[in-house]
């Protein structure tokens, strides 16, 4: 047992207590787990046949969802890139500036998109624009943090080389850091894009338009076959984005 230390027993004990506590709080029950046939039964009875005539309409709606997710995250990336340089300890303006930018990023991140969504739906009215803004704000916080951590982990050698040729601080940082972290930036971006597609569905349910709104409408009017059709389209959408992300990343690396 060379891999295990005595301290491990304490950790295991702590985790066991946490599991037990969470299970009780979440009302976990094995009995219901084995009664999942109800769920299966519901799916089997109501989700078939798919409503193929809805596909053109749903595709149109999915375009809204996709646009909201894409634009929201891309603009967020453009803003997060410069901010992340201010939020990284090795490239920030000053110690105070570093903490200020860091904490504002966590503040933005701590607000879930759905809360932003609920606010914007009221203040800007129903529709995809509210969803777009909510996704944009949250992702500035998320991408800003992730990219700043990439910057902090970047190799310092090329930065030294840029200093040595006499380049200005900022230019040196841009050229020595961005090429290094670029593949990881893209991979974070595509993951956030994928998450944003799912988020924009949820935001659709509170009035943010797109596939989510259709899904909610069908659900509320007990049109389960139509709902199943929307779900299928969502699945295809997410898989397609994932595949495209993979291709782009491979080309970049």
């Amino acid at each position: 047992m060379v891999w295990f230390r005595k301290r491990l027993i304490v950790y295991v004990l702590f985790i066991a207590i946490a599991i037990w506590f969470s299970a009780v709080t979440a009302e976990f029950s094995f009995v219901s787990l084995f009664r999942l046939e109800n769920t299966w039964d519901f799916i089997q009875r109501n989700f078939w046949p798919l409503r193929w005539e809805l596909v053109p309409y749903l595709l149109q709606q999915s375009l809204i969802t996709l646009s909201v997710a894409f634009l929201g995250t891309l603009v967020a990336l453009c803003l997060a890139l410069p901010i992340s340089f201010l939020a990284a300890s090795n490239t920030s303006v000053s110690k105070a500036g570093y903490y200020a930018v860091r904490s504002s990023l966590s503040l933005v991140r701590s607000v879930p998109e759905i809360v932003f969504g609920l606010i914007f739906v009221v203040s800007l009215g129903l529709g995809p624009f509210a969803a777009l803004l909510a996704i944009f704000l949250h992702n500035v916080g998320v991408l800003g943090k992730l990219i700043s951590e990439l910057i902090e982990a970047a190799e310092s050698g090329p930065q030294e080389a840029m200093k040595s040729v006499g380049s200005s601080r900022r230019i040196g940082q841009i050229f020595s850091i961005i090429p290094q972290i670029w593949p990881n930036v893209l991979s974070h971006y595509f993951y956030r894009f994928e998450v944003a597609i799912r988020t924009s569905l949820v935001l659709g349910m509170i009035g943010g338009g797109g596939l989510g709104q259709s899904l909610m409408n069908y659900y509320n009017s007990l049109a389960y076959e139509a709902m199943a059709t929307a779900i299928s389209i969502i699945m295809i959408l997410v898989i397609v984005v994932d595949v495209i992300g993979g291709i782009v990343r491979k080309r970049v690396i």
């Binding site: 050698g157 090329p158 030294e160 080389a161 840029m162 200093k163 040595s164 040729v165 006499g166 050229f175 020595s176 090429p179 290094q180 670029w182």
Partner: peptide, 16 residues
């Protein structure tokens, strides 16, 4: 520094 060229053990070129 513009007047001083410097080369390094690990080269420190800009990747990509």
């Amino acid at each position: 520094r513009t007047g001083m060229g410097m080369i390094f053990q690990h080269f420190y070129l800009i990747p990509r």
